[in-house]
Design a protein around this nucleic acid. Sequence first.
DNA 1: AGTCCATCTTACTCGGAGTAGGTTACTGAC
DNA 2: GTCAGTAACCTACTCCGAGTAAGATGGACT
Lengths: 199, 199
Amino acid sequence: MTTAKRKRMPRAERERQMIEVAEQVFSARGYAAASMDEIAELVGVSKPMLYEYFDSKEGLLVACIRQSRTELRDVTAQATVGAATAEEALRRGMLAFFVFIRERRQAWSLLRHEMALIGTPAAEEIEQIRRQQTDLIAAMVSAYLADDDHLRAEATAQIVVGSNERLAIWCEQHEEVTPEMATEYAMDVLWRGLDPRQG
Amino acid sequence: MTTAKRKRMPRAERERQMIEVAEQVFSARGYAAASMDEIAELVGVSKPMLYEYFDSKEGLLVACIRQSRTELRDVTAQATVGAATAEEALRRGMLAFFVFIRERRQAWSLLRHEMALIGTPAAEEIEQIRRQQTDLIAAMVSAYLADDDHLRAEATAQIVVGSNERLAIWCEQHEEVTPEMATEYAMDVLWRGLDPRQG
DNA sequence: AGTCCATCTTACTCGGAGTAGGTTACTGAC
DNA sequence: GTCAGTAACCTACTCCGAGTAAGATGGACT
């Protein structure tokens, strides 16, 4: 379809193509229900090629996740540049996140599947990839808030990420919640805190 | 071992026994790597019995998760009774949570596996079970904080739960973080907020 | 024109989820 | 006692999909 003769393309290009197809199939069918045979057929290649390039079904999923996470990190990082205050950086970053998950459904669906790898050999690698995001936030927390307690900064990053991910899943069931509203809800708790005494 | 003749026990009892064994196997091997044959053998029963009582591997996992989540909700709900303020209720609830995940590793490991069911027919049922927890928190938020915005209360509950779950996973990699420290980190963000201006 | 190797294929194995159909022990009725 | 009736249980399969062994083929470079 895209290219005339579906044959003999260089490894790097084939890999990209495989990831693209796999991303669609994984997010459409779910990781467990997706079959390597189907992905291979859609790519227009035989199954052993997938194994040649990605070792296993898990490996293929990890490659897909790595790509989507990198995009997400870049989008959120980009959103925060030029923010004057910590508050503004946090708000912009979160808004970028909620916009991302609404616009790039497929990528987000894939990221949700990273949890499917818990308890597998790939779990550690996934945790490594997540650190792209948490390290970024932990660094901002330390810098903006002049907090030199490293452990606390990491914990704070986990809280921010965890909040956003859960909120994102919740948003999927509440179509009426816009990215702006989600951001407002999150800011209200994370920045101001639940303590009602402050104005 | 436990009972002399491993034969012919009433359904309810057999179910409990199956769940007990399945909980161990799932949390030890991981959902994907666990096999129904192994579980059946450890129970001392043949595989079709598992399917008779739980329909599928997924169904068995859901049953295990339901039990562990009920325990977790009861523990956290119990911890908050008699708290004088919202702050105290939140702190006690979260401390109970972090103690739970450290003491009942197996149950917590199982709850982490609920994510493995994303994109499967059981996903909706899992989300239903989670609501045991979020509804409880949303109700407390509404009551204590006199907030009548239902949507916001739900979002807040998701933030609290998401924070705690991510923090719990992070704690597994940081043995030096005690439940008390985790609670303090979480309270500092969720109650006071990140805004450094307040004292 | 021939050699090398990266790309690609056919045709398998193997393990585990799920099932068809039959068997055995207990329960109550007479 | 003994004879349904049924709940608990088993053996012995099917089938699908992950992963692999071993070989074919096209193109690049000498």
